[in-house]
Design a protein around this nucleic acid. Structure first.
Length: 1085
RNA sequence: GGGCCUGUAGCUCAGCUGGUUAGAGCGCUACUCUGAUAAAGUAGAGGUCGGAUGUUCGAGUCAUCCCAGGCCCA
């Protein structure tokens, strides 16, 4: 025997409830039982988690992505798929190093070296472990059911060695090579930065001293002539090799300050304005850029030993990238100190000079600059140029310049050796895989393909400490070996293996660096290169390393490729998605995952980007405490993932008010009345709707047919139809990753349930006798709520379980303990009744129009009116109108409902062509018909159309259904229209109606008085009403109605208050619209 | 310069395969209902659907071009 429901307070602290449930889950081992639910199932759904960087606490943007992951995992679990539930942590790479450096107060790589690389790496690991635990806890607060004791770590040996295997595979194909490139470099951190690191937050507006200087030409016939050159990086001048002009431009030859100089003609005026030229500058002639190409010049620091190799290479190059928006139209080119310069130099066979070491200090061969920092030499440069009479002018120049994203040091460009994977042969495989994958949103595929089209070789090395130890052993002889596994290393080790093993054999710096091998070519002892790996290697290998690619190939085959992955898309096309695709292409010529579910970026409530430094970022813990996790999760779930999400406490409040609280109110309403009536699930006449097994086999609701004679009403039929349609649509939408549609469907359903089903059914629950009608209402509402709790389980796991536990688990013996142990509901198609849904939709629409019409005429709903006239659009709606007549009468408090088409005499007509029918038939003649209709007699057309006769309009013979007839307002009616529908109320109020209105008004006052006097809903009362004579009659007529509505045993109505009422405390007066006054007194009977 | 996305009410966004009078939430104003009340409902104002051209009987929706913004690449 089921017991009463726990009472549900409409005033609820959701956050406290969530914490209670969380504890209950923990105490009862729900997450683990949930994960094991499908252990014996055949069908699998493989999710590979994109690792979260275990480097800081979670922000709400992390919660966004993790909500998606949890949501789809839960959905598939309820559907009975076996899953792995493995979370992943990213815990290697520069990100971690940066935070540890901050923690330790380190300023540069030298500090790390001084501290000891081994100790530093240990600190990094500790930080990762610390935050992995923190994030695990926070994720559990989010309701994320993962196998938290079994998370994978990219810092694990397995992960690192699997990358070795990948690199070895590449090396065997000859794809690994050492290359030189000029890259952005932070002199403080002593490392290169990838393009990605600069893009994110790596630019600042910086003002530099920017010199204009002369490059003297030395060819015969050009003696005394100079190129005018401009640069924003004076320190690169010592590494100058060439100058570049645009061959298409016209260059001016100008005499100024006693020198002859060349520059782009179009810049003449702006150079004067900037005081680079004097007002006296004299144009001597002009030449095409192409004519300058090949001229030789003397570079400003030709005397330096470093220039020895390139002194005879100084000449003018042709480069169509040269612009004339700023500068001089002649570009100083230092291939060893600029990225574009390097490329241009390569194309022209120049020798790059690399002036700086890893700390940004000039190397040997740069004279007085040697030993100085690039940042400090600009004045020395200017002095030297002045002495040589090469300096024309120094101006301040403000521009966006790249800085290090962690220490804000201005970046330099350095020529360095790095290791690359040649992508030429991998690219087609990647393109094929990308095409085979399903991308959500769909444009993801186009973006990834675009990236692949343009991608260059993958630079995999990084000159840092804590990361993948690249297993590359480069010998001085020019040969290099790549090691593919721990076993291979052991076999080939010639020294250091024992020490390495003793230290734990973890393939990390510094321990790994002690192991040396013999060069496979010359036999010399070789050390590992010092570089560590690009962090995306760590994340990309995950679909192999975490599911036993090397250790358990059979298991791996079961779970690869993943059925789905999910991550935020803006960065991941070139990061995680990219590295996943590379590795799957190289190792298996396969796609890594079948479905990619990606989402955009989070903004604050005002649409601004969230930044910790800006102060508008929200920590997950704060949000969980203030708004609650269900609210957060619902906000995420209802959003279109392809567009950015504006998120904040206000949006949270909105979601709570619009969705969570209304649903809670329904739940509260249900339990309140069910308890009053001693209604329990035992009384439910709809079979178990909670899915006792994950595959739903015992879910009787899915094949139930609504019995006759059990009291089910049209309203029940309707909401159960909506419920089953919702179930079907939710299933379809979730299977096709259409989250906003799924969530939107629930919102619409809850609104229908609240504002139509429950409101229209209230009297069924209130009434005192417990008949079949009442039981059908309880059964229906109970089924709606219990089904909703399961549909919502993946979305709002807390709320869903709160409802489920109270309504089901704690009432029914063999029901699963938690909603998360139930199955996904199956729709009962036989209960989906399009007709009843359309009818109700029409009733809702017309009721709304009726209320609108009432509002216009300022007639309260309490005041009964004579007629409501409805104008509908479709044939079937005329029939439907008869069926919803009673509903409309009640909703609108009217005596009759009339189809407007039946009262042609009362309403005016407007005739319109039915374009949907006429369009295809008459084509271009439509306009003619339109005009003819305008000119014709509307009443006659309407009559003919109603009668189904052929209508003659001008030269056309139209069928009855080829015109549309609308009615317009007439006297004594207030009309409201919407989308072709209209509703009108007759605004004339008879005495009889007025009396009824008064009675209802009085009832309202009595009900308020009951409430304010603290009476229970079921208490009976005695009632005395005093009022003027002309109201007395009205009230007497409706005395029975008043008594019934207010549970009054005795009703005394009169002009004078009877003696019995003297001293009765509860009393209230009411002023009627017509000036009459009514006073009500009551006491408990 | 190339690729992708976006442009609909003051703000944030829906509008599926082209079809009669383009919707919601928020905000604002007014009102109503209140034994679900930390609610709910109704109305009002507010839109030449970024612009142009084309296809079509008919375009917010399809095509082409242009403009603006965002992201990616060069």
């Amino acid at each position: 025997m089921a017991s009463h429901f726990d009472s549900v307070d409409p005033k609820v602290d959701f956050v406290a409830k969530e914490e209670e449930i969380l504890k209950w889950w923990d105490d009862n081992d729900i997450p683990a039982r949930y994960r094991k639910l499908n252990d014996d199932k055949e069908k699998k759904y493989s999710f590979i988690d994109g690792p979260i960087t275990a480097n800081n606490a979670m922000g709400v943007h992390h919660a966004w992505g993790r909500t998606y992951k949890d949501l789809f995992l839960r959905f598939r679990n309820m559907q009975g798929y076996k899953q792995r539930f493995q979370n992943g942590f990213d815990g290697q790479g520069l990100w971690i190093e940066v935070e540890v450096e901050k923690e330790m107060g380190f300023k540069s790589k030298r500090d790390i070296e001084a501290f000891g690389v081994g100790k530093f790496v240990e600190e990094c690991r500790k930080r990762v472990d610390r935050f992995a635990e923190r994030i695990s806890n926070q994720s559990q607060r989010l309701g994320y059911f993962m196998d938290w004791d079994n998370s994978y770590h990219t810092k694990s040996d397995e992960n690192n060695y699997t990358i070795w295997h990948f690199l070895k595979t590449c090396a065997d194909k000859g794809w690994i090579y050492k290359g030189r490139d000029v890259m952005p470099w932070c002199p403080r951190c002593g490392t290169g930065l990838s393009q990605h690191e600069i893009v994110t937050e790596g630019y600042q507006d910086i003002t530099h001293d920017s010199p204009y200087l002369k490059f003297p030409l030395i060819d015969d016939g050009h003696e005394g002539e100079n190129l005018l050159v401009w640069t924003t990086t004076p320190w690169t001048l010592a590494a100058n090799v060439a100058a570049a002009v645009n061959p298409e431009y016209t260059y001016a030859k100008v005499e100024d300050r006693g020198s002859v100089i060349y520059f782009s003609k179009s810049l003449l005026e702006s150079l004067k304005k900037d005081h680079v030229l004097t007002g006296e500058a004299k144009v001597l002639g002009e030449v095409k850029g192409s004519e300058l190409v090949g001229l030789r010049y003397k570079a400003p620091f030709d005397e330096l030993p470093a220039q020895d190799e390139v002194r005879d290479q100084h000449r003018v190059l042709s480069w169509d990238e040269v612009g004339e928006d700023e500068g001089t139209g002649i570009v100083h080119t230092a291939p060893g100190a600029g990225a574009e310069d390097f490329k241009l130099g390569n194309e022209n066979g120049l020798t790059p000079i690399a002036p700086l070491d890893q700390n940004g200090i000039y190397k040997e061969g740069f004279g007085e600059f040697t030993g100085k920092s690039a940042a400090d030499v600009k004045d020395m440069v200017f002095e030297s140029l002045k002495e040589k009479d090469l300096l024309v002018r120094v101006n301040k120049y403000t521009h966006r310049y790249p800085v290090c994203w962690r220490c804000s040091t201005e970046l330099v460009f350095r020529l360095v050796d790095e290791w690359f994977i040649n992508m030429d042969e991998i690219r087609p495989k990647m393109q094929k895989a990308t095409n085979e994958m399903n991308w959500y949103p769909e444009f993801g595929k186009a973006r990834e393909l675009d990236w692949l089209k343009n991608m260059q070789d993958w630079m995999i090395s990084k000159k840092r400490y804590y990361g993948l130890a690249l297993p590359i052993y480069a010998c001085d002889c020019g040969n290099f070996d790549v090691i593919g596994s721990s076993e291979e290393l052991k076999e080939r080790a010639v020294e250091g293996w024992e020490e390495f093993e003793a230290a734990g054999a973890s393939p990390h710096r510094p321990w790994i660096d002690g192991v040396k091998i013999a060069c496979s070519d010359c036999g010399e002892t070789v050390s590992r290169i010092e570089d560590v790996g690009n962090a995306w290697l760590d994340a990309g290998i995950v679909p192999f390393s975490t599911i036993g690619y090397k250790s358990d190939p059979e298991y791996w085959k079961e779970w690869f490729p993943a059925d789905w992955i999910s991550e935020s898309f803006p960065g991941q096309f070139r990061n995680w998605f990219y590295s996943l695709i590379v590795m799957a292409a190289v190792l298996e010529d396969s796609m890594p995952a079948k479905n990619v579910f990606a989402y955009a970026l989070m903004r604050d409530e005002n649409g601004e980007e969230m930044h910790k430094s800006k102060g508008n970022a929200i920590w997950f813990e704060d949000a969980a405490e203030k708004m609650g996790v269900d609210v957060m999760r619902w906000t995420y779930s209802r959003h279109n993932p392809a567009s950015n999400l504006n998120f904040g406490y206000k949006t949270g409040d909105e979601v709570r008010r619009q969705f969570i609280i209304p649903l809670w109110n329904i739940y509260s309403f249900f339990t309140t009345y069910a308890n009053l009536d001693d209604w329990t699930p035992d009384d439910c006449v709809i079979p178990s709707s909670f899915g006792f097994t994950p595959d739903g086999e015992q879910n009787g609701f899915e094949s139930w047919t609504m019995p006759e004679g059990e009291g089910f009403s049209e309203l029940d039929r309707w909401i159960l139809s909506e419920l089953n349609q919702l179930t079907q649509k939710m299933t379809d939408n979730l299977e096709s990753w259409q989250l906003p549609y799924a969530a939107g469907g629930v919102e619409q359903f809850v609104e229908d349930l609240s504002n139509w089903y429950v409101r229209r059914s209230r009297r069924r629950f209130w009434k005192t006798e417990g008949d079949k009608d009442k039981n059908a209402a309880y059964s229906t509402l109970y089924t709606c709520l219990t089904t909703l709790s399961r549909l919502l389980a993946p979305f709002t796991p807390f709320f869903a379980d709160i409802m489920y536990r109270n309504l089901v688990a704690e009432r029914i013996d063999d029901a699963p303990d938690s909603v998360h142990l139930t199955s996904w509901p199956k729709a009962n198609a036989s209960l989906v009744d399009e007709d009843v849904m359309n009818q109700t939709r029409l009733a809702i629409r017309l009721a709304s129009l009726g209320r609108s019409a009432r509002a216009q005429s300022r007639l309260k709903v309490r005041q009964p009116l004579g007629e409501f006239v409805a104008e509908v659009r479709h044939d079937w709606e005329h029939f439907a109108l008869a069926k919803i007549e009673n509903v409309l009468k009640e909703e609108l408090n009217v005596k009759s409902v009339i189809d407007a088409s039946e009262m042609g005499g009362l309403l005016g007509f407007e005739i319109k062509p039915n374009l949907r029918v006429l369009g295809p038939k008459y084509g271009k003649q439509i306009d003619e018909i339109r005009n003819a209709i305008q000119a014709a007699d509307a009443n006659e057309i309407a009559r003919a159309s109603e009668a189904g006769e052929t209508i003659s309009i001008g030269s056309f013979e139209l069928e009855a259904d080829e015109v549309l007839i609308e009615r317009v307002a007439l006297e004594n009616y207030a009309v409201a229209t919407d989308a072709g529908y209209a509703g009108a109320v007759l605004t004339v109020v008879s005495d009889e109606l007025k009396a009824e209105g008064t009675a209802r008004e009085v009832v309202r006052v009595i009900q308020n008085l009951r409430k304010s006097s603290g009476l229970k809903i079921s208490d009976r009362i005695n009632l005395w009403i005093s009022c003027s004579d002309d109201v007395t009659g009205a009230l007497m007529t409706h005395a029975d109605y008043i008594a019934e509505e207010t549970l009054a045993d005795n009703v005394d109505i009169g002009a004078v208050l009877s003696d019995d009422a003297q001293g009765v405390a509860a009393s209230e007066s009411l002023d009627l619209d017509d000036g009459n006054k009514v006073t009500v007194n009551l006491e408990k009977a």
